[in-house]
């Protein structure tokens, strides 16, 4: 199966968008997962619901909300441009942002489950041996939660590769900038005679997604032979 230069560019862009989305979301997702797993505070249920919202909201609504926040008149977008020099509208960075928001619930879920599975009594044991809270976290909690963290990243990456609705709503379908794999497949479906291209890109999408799911399952199952994400 030979891909054309355009199709290769689409796959490359998709991988870049997803990699940046997941890399940037990782610390946020882990912090949220930790807070939801280990802290009891007022508003925890609300935070949990907000994190999960992109999972159940129509993606087009998520895209519209992103437009409101980051669009020409969006205050968050203006703040990001002024203070961080980040521009999202009609850019690949916008596609990454949309992917990140859509992938967040899956990442937080996988990481939260693995943090909840870390026995707090092991952390207590570490502290009686002189470990500070930070040291306990880096030496005990984080390594024990690592399979779930990696699985969450891979799952988020797969979700991100498939992101369509929020992306096309938020940053449109611009070749070379925001036309990721699903958008290119959708575009090809609209063109008479595009079936061959749809097939080629579709096979790539199936292969990437399947590999990601198997990888995350393998990561979680790997060490102890128990636990799963699927």
């Amino acid at each position: 199966m030979i891909l054309t230069a355009d199709e290769l560019a689409v796959v490359g862009l998709s991988l870049k968008v997803s990699a940046v989305a997941i890399g940037a979301t990782l610390p946020v997702a882990f912090a949220l997962a930790w807070v939801l797993a280990r802290r009891v505070f007022p508003g925890r249920v609300l935070l949990d619901a907000l994190v999960h919202l992109p999972l159940v909201l129509p993606p087009v609504v998520t895209g519209w909300l992103l437009l409101l926040a980051f669009g020409a008149n969006g205050s968050v977008g203006r703040w990001a441009a002024d203070w961080l020099g980040l521009h999202f509208m009609f850019r690949w960075t916008g596609a990454a942002l949309a992917s990140a928001v859509m992938a967040l619930p899956l990442m937080v879920r996988a990481m939260r489950l693995s943090i909840e599975a870390v026995d707090p009594r092991l952390e207590q044991a570490a502290m009686t041996l002189g470990a500070s809270r930070l040291r306990t976290f880096t030496a005990i909690t984080l390594p024990l939660a690592m399979p779930g963290v990696l699985a969450g990243m891979v799952l988020g990456f797969a979700r991100s590769l498939g992101e369509f609705g929020a992306t096309i709503t938020f940053v449109s379908n611009i070749p070379g900038e925001t036309r990721t794999l699903p958008l290119a497949i959708y575009g090809a479906l609209q063109v008479p005679g595009g079936e061959a291209q749809v097939t080629r890109l579709g096979v790539i999408a199936v292969a990437l997604s399947l590999a990601a799911l198997l990888a995350s399952e393998w990561l979680v199952r790997g060490r102890e032979g128990r636990g799963h994400v699927l």
Partner: peptide, 19 residues
């Protein structure tokens, strides 16, 4: 604080670090 008490605590369930 627990870290400064220097207790050698042998727990009922061992609590060895599995990793």
């Amino acid at each position: 604080p627990v870290q400064q008490r220097r207790a050698g605590y042998v727990f009922q369930d061992g609590r060895l670090f599995p990793h």
